[in-house]
């Protein structure tokens, strides 16, 4: 493994140049994953920036990002590889018309192999090793995790008809999970692990400033403060950082320079995602918005 970064501070700085701010913990995790060549498992509440971390890492390295979104019923055919059956059938017809004899080995060659994200990451040819994002692995069936073990451990996959493919350069693998189900120990054992926390308020303000450059300073401060208070209410889905960014973008798109009550109610859909949450927030509006009589 060639070290792309000297240490985790370099990772932090490079990502900051790309407007993605990470704390010491995540920077160390990314740095170690890069340097040790091990997969990195990121867990955390929805909306803390797990997926964005992988995307930012790919940009920082100038590497292509290959994404595998997990869902129930995901199989080898969608994750690893698939044979191109149409072409195989054509090849059979062609052989027939030429009156050639066709063996199994003629049909199961690389010519007929269709790459899916994991095989694609392994066979990637290019200046930089790709970043493979296996997103929301907890949504796949637990049997699917077993499929990944060979790949995560050895960076190789075995296709029965062809043999084993091993990556020339180990792809950088980032797995994310929302903990909707416990992952197997066998999978965890093969990965470095980092629990992503919500950023502290000061960092949150800094992130907002960079992701919504058009928003005014008082708006960002007021919105951060508001979301901080709203998170303490009893909500079905507490607004995360991603929602806060959406909300501030919405507010600034409406031309709000400050957090006024009318704009707030108009854009509430960006942070309150159920009817109950909307009502809870509206009910507590007086406590949430610090006394600002000129806005009422």
């Amino acid at each position: 493994m060639t070290a792309a970064f000297r240490d985790e501070i370099a990772v932090q700085q490079r990502l900051a140049e790309l407007d993605y701010l990470v704390d010491d913990g995540l920077a160390t995790a990314l740095y170690l994953a890069l340097t040790l060549g091990q997969p990195l498992l990121l867990e955390g509440e929805p909306g803390v920036g797990k997926t964005t971390a992988a995307k930012a890492l790919a940009r920082a390295l100038g590497a292509p990002l290959i994404r595998l979104q997990c869902y129930e019923g995901l199989t080898t055919n969608e994750a690893l590889y698939e044979w191109n059956y149409q072409r195989q059938l054509l090849a059979i017809r062609l052989a027939e018309s030429r009156e050639e004899k066709l063996a199994d080995a003629d049909l199961f060659t690389e010519e007929f192999l269709q790459e899916r994200p994991i095989l694609q990451a392994i066979r990637h040819q290019g200046p930089a090793a790709p970043v493979l994002l296996i997103d929301e692995i907890d949504r796949a069936d637990d049997e699917f995790e077993a499929l990944l073990l060979e790949f995560l451990g050895e960076a190789s996959i075995t296709i029965p008809e062809l043999g084993t493919f091993t990556a020339a350069r180990r792809p950088i693998v980032v797995l994310t999970s929302n903990r909707s189900r416990e992952l197997h120990d066998a999978l965890r054992r093969r990965c470095l692990y980092h629990w992503v926390e919500f950023p502290e308020p000061r960092r949150a303000v800094e992130i907002l400033r960079r992701s919504v450059p058009s928003a005014s300073e008082p708006l960002i401060a007021a919105a951060t403060d508001f979301v901080g208070r709203a998170r303490r209410l009893d909500l079905d889905k507490a607004p995360g950082l991603a929602e806060t960014i959406d909300w501030v973008s919405a507010l600034s798109a409406l031309g709000a320079a400050e957090l006024g009550r009318v704009d707030l109610i108009r854009t509430l859909g960006a942070i309150a995602k159920t009817l109950d949450d909307r009502e809870v927030i509206l009910g507590a509006l007086d406590e949430l918005v610090p006394a600002a009589p000129e806005n009422t």
């Binding site: 985790e8 913990g25 995790a29 170690l32 040790l36 054992r189 470095l192 692990y193």
Partner: peptide, 28 residues
């Protein structure tokens, strides 16, 4: 993994040691 991470760069602060240890040793 922890030993390899330590040998990459000796931790010069407790915080760095903390993150290195936590990321390589804890899995849940």
């Amino acid at each position: 993994a922890f030993a390899r991470a330590l040998s990459l760069r000796a931790p010069d602060s407790l915080s760095r040691l903390y993150w290195t240890a936590r990321i390589s040793l804890v899995h849940r």
